[in-house]
């Protein structure tokens, strides 16, 4: 069979499965990025806090997760998670057994905690980019707490964070390929399966590379668009 037929949508073509797997890659990355956003926001808050403990905790989080291989984090959550659950199961029921855990959620969580470390730095930088005067002005008109945060801080943090978030998103997209080690059928895993059963690894890994390129290029375009939209009210030299 020619490469064209192999990648096509015919009876023996893998096209539909590869597209499905691409959608899975996108889904798992979106979930991971969302988890990362939550962790990142909390950690950034800690790093900017007045409390010494919170600052140190935030620094430890970002240092550790940016210094340890992402693959190791995936292994830790995937195998460690089922180790924990299995021992809980033994405690509760008294029987031994192995409990597997959901590959999608674990994978998204693993990529998410790593992404959170990078997003924390992005949010922190974006927060520090807000002119102090704006916050003082908001305080002087009597805004406080939540009002100040969602009217003044949040819109500007998001605006300044867009370029950095774009980079972190690309990292997460590429890191999502590592989730294939847990058996989740995303783009790389699907190409592995297809390579195995057709013995045409070059064709399928190239196809995967092209699909990843499409994903990263569309992301670049989207983030550029978002940046210019968010910056439309800012005068620049």
């Amino acid at each position: 069979m020619s490469a064209f037929e192999l990648l096509g949508f015919g009876e023996k073509g893998w096209g539909a499965l590869l597209l499905q797997a691409t959608a899975m890659t996108l889904a798992v990355t979106l979930t991971a990025f969302f988890f990362g956003g939550v962790f990142g926001a909390v950690v950034a808050r800690g790093k900017l806090s007045d409390s010494m403990v919170a600052r140190v905790a935030g620094d430890v989080y970002t240092t550790v997760l940016r210094g340890v291989p992402d693959l190791l984090v995936i292994y830790l959550l995937y195998f460690g998670g089922s180790q924990l659950l299995s021992s809980l199961y033994r405690l509760v029921t008294g029987e031994t057994g192995f409990i597997g855990i959901n590959a999608f959620l674990t994978g998204a969580m693993a990529v998410g905690v790593v992404s959170g470390a990078y997003q924390a730095e992005v949010f922190r930088g974006a927060y520090l980019a807000i002119p102090r005067g704006e916050i003082e002005a908001a305080r002087s008109v009597g805004m406080s707490g939540w009002t100040l945060f969602h009217r003044i801080v949040l819109p500007q943090v998001l605006r300044f964070a867009i370029p950095g978030l774009g980079n972190v998103w690309q990292l997460a997209l590429k890191e999502s390929a590592l989730i294939s080690v847990t058996g989740l059928v995303e783009l790389l895993r699907q190409s592995q399966v297809a390579s195995g059963s057709t013995r045409q690894p070059f064709v399928f890994y190239s196809a995967a590379a092209v699909l990843y390129l499409v994903l990263t290029s569309v992301s670049t375009w989207t983030f550029n668009k978002a940046e210019s939209t968010a910056m439309r009210g800012v005068r620049r030299a």
Binding site: S176, L188, S191, A209, L213
Partner: peptide
Amino acid sequence: RGTPLLVQMFL
């Protein structure tokens, strides 16, 4: 820069 390292390694 646009593809995952693991894909490059497998290729």
